[in-house]
Write a protein that binds this DNA or RNA. Structure first.
Lengths: 333, 333
DNA sequence: CTGTTAGCGCTTTCAA
DNA sequence: TTGAAAGCGCTAACAG
């Protein structure tokens, strides 16, 4: 790979390679030797061999990142946050995608570990026993995003709270006959927490209500296809587990000539920029995914340095008021 | 890092470490030794040391990818394509972001090279002399995306043609007073090619027309802010250099109560999924960015293997007919 | 089929 | 302050 080695430049300067190594790593070198070495390095464009260095020093300044898929706005925001922090700290990202395959996620952890990363951030699909066992076997810190689990390091958005807040908003607009268009419970955050928060608000605060569940996946298209199933339940409002799902159902309603929010109210979760440009704009809860990425990166870096001080793990939630929900009157307050 | 080494398992099996190495790399090993070694490896959970291996073999199965920023749909689609191919070929992606900084892009190439990647894909902001000099100094293949330059390996979308096709479409709908809402010429593909194609169609085929240029950046928000400047020019149609820009301007028009396409026609480039869900849906030209990623990955892998056979570099363009352009009548045909 | 040997390029004692 | 020497964990002749 790199032609010129530490030995070459040692020869050029008539010093030993130890001196060159010392120069490179800030050890004692006499002023004149320093000068000579500096010149030689500049002249040759010498770059120290990454692998040899790592073989000795045992740390790579590499951090592994596993994501479920790349073409998702959420994921890219998180990645952006991670990248931002890693960069500042001179770490490079080794990225792998689990392609929404739980088993593959585990393989990726192994593979990344095997490639000598100093720490791993996993945007997880779900933490299994397999994961926990692996974490105990592995000698580097691993941080999970997107799911609570007390056996491992994790950071996640408070999906339960988001669901709860959204439910409160629906209730204030007097909706009591709602379809929750959500995803499989395999996804702990979106599939379970977000839904549970929504349901619990109604359970705790409302006496007369009906919430039906319709299951879809994360794709825009699939949500669109569930349109009729949702309509058959005859709700006054549809809560969608993500903004993307909301876009899908809105398209279906548009095509059917069903007016939002006059005939039916909708809302999503996520707060993508595009939600605001829709006609009508979507009421949603905005998560700061970039911040989530930043905090996770800071934390893993701390863990690598054996600091145990944790950054605050509080990711703010913000209800974005759009035009997609109508107050249908009633006896609230 | 990994505690157990090839030597350890050699000792356990009472063979030499060469035999273990051979076992690992598919050389001759007797059946019974194979068995012994296999067991020992399983028992210990041995993983060969990545850095030691690479120090010897000189190839890393790492491919470097430099992107301008992460939180862009285009970029994530390209990444997805690259990842797809790399994965199948057992390569891992080392990702760095240039953060829209041309100088940093060059630094990233150096950094990645220094980290021992076998090849680099650069989603470039612009190919400078600096880039070309660097490519000549570096002993690994580099592939540039997003800009033509005969001095280097490149693949890009035919932005010129896309602009041309779009112009033809506008002309067929009798628009002759148009604002081109584009980006800085610093961006060769979007800023120059796409625009030039559009202008050239009119120059070559239309006698009486006016195209005004308004400059914005890639952000949704900035496009929105240019709304009034666009309106001041009083066009019948606005061509936006990207769908995202188009969303921004649409939001502005919506807020002003200006009806699309009745009062003004708009179009974009990109073909993001969301363009179709807008009300009205956006007429746009869809680029297959994922394919672009795939082809670039295949090509870099070929270059690494010293095959010079190139995959077809033809990325299909598709005009997506939305509802955002109105035929304003006139004397066409 | 197997073991011995010699490094890959670097860091790090240790003694000078 | 410097150089010699050992060795990180692995691969690859080479001779047997």
């Amino acid at each position: 790979m790199n032609k010129v080695t530490i030995q070459d430049i040692a020869d050029m300067c008539q010093v030993s390679k130890s001196s060159v190594s010392r120069y490179l790593n800030g050890g004692y070198v006499s002023k004149e030797n320093k000068e000579k070495i500096k010149n030689a390095i500049e002249k040759t464009g010498f770059q120290s061999n990454f692998f040899a260095k790592r073989l000795k020093t045992k740390n790579s300044n590499l951090i592994g990142v596993i994501i479920p898929r790349i073409d998702s706005i959420t994921v890219s925001k998180v990645l952006n946050g991670i990248n931002n922090i890693c960069e500042k700290n001179n770490y490079t990202i080794l990225m792998q995608s689990s392609n929404l395959d739980l088993k593959k996620e585990v393989d990726c952890i192994n593979s990344l570990y095997n490639q000598g990363v100093d720490g791993i951030i996993v945007y997880t699909l779900g933490i299994t026993n397999e994961h926990i066992k692996l974490c105990n076997n592995i000698k580097i810190p691993i941080m999970f995003l997107n799911q609570k689990n007390e056996n491992v390091n994790y950071i996640c958005i408070d999906d339960y709270k988001a669901g709860y807040i959204m439910a409160e908003h629906f209730y204030k607009h007097n909706h009591k006959n709602i379809v929750f268009l959500g995803v499989s419970e395999q996804d702990k955050s979106v599939g379970i927490e977000r839904k549970q928060g929504f349901y619990d608000f109604y359970k705790n605060n409302v006496s007369n209500y009906k919430i039906d569940f319709v299951e879809t996946d994360f794709s825009f298209k699939s949500a669109y296809n569930k349109g009729q199933a949702v309509l058959n339940l005859n709700p006054t409002a549809v809560v969608c587990a993500t903004d993307n799902i909301c876009l899908g159902i809105m398209l279906y309603f548009n095509e059917k000539g069903i007016k939002i929010p006059n005939e039916i109210s909708v809302a999503g979760f996520g707060g993508y920029e595009v939600s605001s440009v829709m006609k009508p704009s979507i009421t949603t809860i905005r998560f700061d995914y970039e911040l989530l990425g930043k905090i996770s990166a800071k934390n893993i870096l701390n863990l690598i340095k054996n600091n145990n001080e944790k950054e605050d793990v509080n990711i703010p939630l913000k209800l974005i008021l759009g035009e997609s929900i109508k107050d249908i009157g009633g006896n609230y307050e």
